[in-house]
Deep mutational scan, measured.
Amino acid sequence: LQLFIKTLTGKTSTVEMEPSDTIENLKAKIQDKEGIPPDQQRLIFAGKQLEDGRTLSDYNIQKESTLHLVL
């Protein structure tokens, strides 16, 4: 599924993920695209901070969801 990652600067990146992927996997993919180390990334979806060990489906993240990346 395609996700949009929006940064505080207003920049939006697109990443392709599976519902079974963990937040950790997602942060690794963001690191590949943006060069931001996972330990500096905080991802927010629906007002919640996402935890590394959980999966996208745990948070009911659907295709074309927008996640907010806070550093």
Rank of each mutant, 00 (worst) to 15 (best):
E34K: 07
G53M: 07
S57P: 03
S65I: 05
E64A: 11
T9R: 10
P38D: 04
T55P: 06
N25S: 13
M17Q: 02
Q2C: 08
K33E: 08
D21V: 02
L3M: 04
E51T: 05
E64L: 13
L56G: 01
T9D: 14
K6Y: 08
T14R: 11
T66A: 05
Q62G: 13
E16F: 15
F4R: 07
S57A: 14
I5D: 02
V70P: 01
E64Y: 15
S13P: 02
S57H: 10
D39I: 09
S57G: 09
L8G: 10
N25A: 14
S57L: 11
F4A: 04
Q2H: 12
T66Q: 06
E18G: 08
P38C: 08
L8W: 15
Y59R: 00
I36G: 03
Q49A: 11
Q41T: 06
N25Y: 13
L56I: 10
D58K: 02
Q40L: 11
K6T: 12
D21M: 07
K29H: 07
K11W: 13
K6S: 08
I5C: 03
K48F: 10
N25I: 12
I30H: 00
I36A: 04
E16D: 10
I30C: 01
I30K: 00
T66P: 02
L56E: 00
N60I: 05
D52C: 04
K48V: 14
S65G: 06
T9I: 07
D52S: 07
E24K: 12
R54F: 13
L69E: 00
L8C: 14
N60V: 04
P19Q: 08
L3T: 01
S65L: 04
L3S: 01
I23H: 00
F4T: 11
K33S: 12
Q49V: 15
D21P: 00
F4V: 08
K63T: 15
Q40K: 09
L71V: 13
Q31R: 13
I5E: 01
F4E: 04
S65T: 08
N60E: 07
D32N: 10
G47E: 04
D32F: 11
A28H: 12
L67M: 05
I61V: 08
P19T: 08
I5L: 05
D32G: 09
A46L: 12
A46K: 14
